[in-house]
């Protein structure tokens, strides 16, 4: 039985709570920027959702109270760098809510994952800002100054972990700095992993997508490393770097834009995993999760249609 006993609003809230551990780990390493981004994301999500729901002539309170807009805002805020300028998360959330959700008819009707749509939009439009992460813990004041662009901290930022690793690997650099970075990423990923296990235990998500997604990553990473171990990331790094765990339990499992049949969910998760590794290894962007998820979102109607379970009494 797969019944949570929760209503839709409670489900959205539970998912938000499950993010706390991963966000805390992120805070420990990157500082106050993480918190400020999340606040910005959540607030702008509420503002844009309210405005658009009001424009569509629906009841604003019903829409805000389901918590889905806030969740979208937070997921996007978590995905973008902690020192990104304030207007980026606002623009990203606006795109996610308006073009990713409300224009399709609001909650439940969006074919794409709104947070990932917002992320992809930002990544294409502002590639530099989207790949610059802080190297050290930022205090509250520092974070405010950077995010609201009161000062420019060049020394505080560096390239995205994955990007960094790629560059250092191709340059044949020592792995010591990489290992520090990896451990930071691994802690954050572990936080999201535990949050994800909580969601599984509460039966808020089913095991199909996370398991298939992680196996997709593992299998593709193994294949690639067999053919060309020098040029690419080690297998374990694929699992614990970038947004892997966040994607496995919080992004790919978004029920609205994911496949809805048990078999379909396995296919869906597995293919996202494979695409993520392909984009990471051969693509121009440091992490491929957003594009992989969006591409598979497009195939969902097809997957669902061909993976219908056999109805009772049908041969």
């Amino acid at each position: 039985m797969h019944s949570t006993g929760l209503n839709t609003n409670q489900i959205m809230r539970q998912v938000t709570y499950a993010l706390i551990l991963g966000v805390s780990a992120s805070y420990v390493f990157f500082g106050w920027g993480v918190v400020i981004q999340i606040l910005l994301g959540a607030i702008s999500a509420i503002v844009f959702e309210s405005a658009f729901v009001a424009l569509r002539g629906r009841k604003v309170i019903d829409s805000i109270s389901d918590g889905s807009a806030v969740l979208t805002g937070i997921l996007l805020a978590i995905s973008i760098p902690a020192i990104a300028p304030w207007w980026m998360v606002v623009v990203g959330v606006a795109f996610a809510i308006i073009f990713g959700k409300q224009l399709y008819g609001g909650l439940g009707n969006n074919p794409f994952n709104p947070a990932m749509l917002g992320y992809a939009f930002l990544l294409i439009s502002y590639p530099l800002q989207m790949t610059t992460w802080p190297i050290d813990f930022l205090s509250f004041n520092q974070a405010i100054e950077v995010i609201f662009q009161l000062l420019h901290f060049d020394g505080l930022s560096g390239a995205t972990r994955l990007d960094d690793v790629k560059t250092s690997l191709s340059l044949g650099r020592e792995l010591t700095t990489l290992q520090i970075h990896s451990s930071v990423q691994a802690w954050i990923n572990a936080g999201f992993l535990i949050g994800g296990i909580y969601l599984l235990a509460r039966k808020i998500i089913s095991w199909h997508i996370p398991v298939a997604f992680l196996s997709g990553i593992l299998i593709m990473a193994m294949l690639i490393s067999v053919f060309d171990p020098q040029q690419h990331l080690p297998i374990q790094n694929h699992l614990m770097l970038g947004g892997t765990m966040l994607a496995a339990f919080f992004i790919a499992t978004d029920p609205i834009s994911a496949s809805t049949t048990p078999k379909g969910r396995l296919i869906y998760g597995f293919l996202i995993g494979i695409l993520v590794v392909i984009i990471r290894s051969f693509g121009g962007y440091p992490d491929g999760i957003a594009f992989a998820v969006l591409l598979l979102n497009m195939t969902v109607p097809l997957i669902d249609y061909y993976t219908q379970p056999k109805a009772f009494g049908k041969s």
Partner: peptide
């Protein structure tokens, strides 16, 4: 509320 396609319904459907 709107359907969020959680598929709880599919898992209890006896048919």
């Amino acid at each position: 509320k709107e359907c969020i396609r959680c598929s709880s319904c599919a898992s209890v459907c006896p048919a």
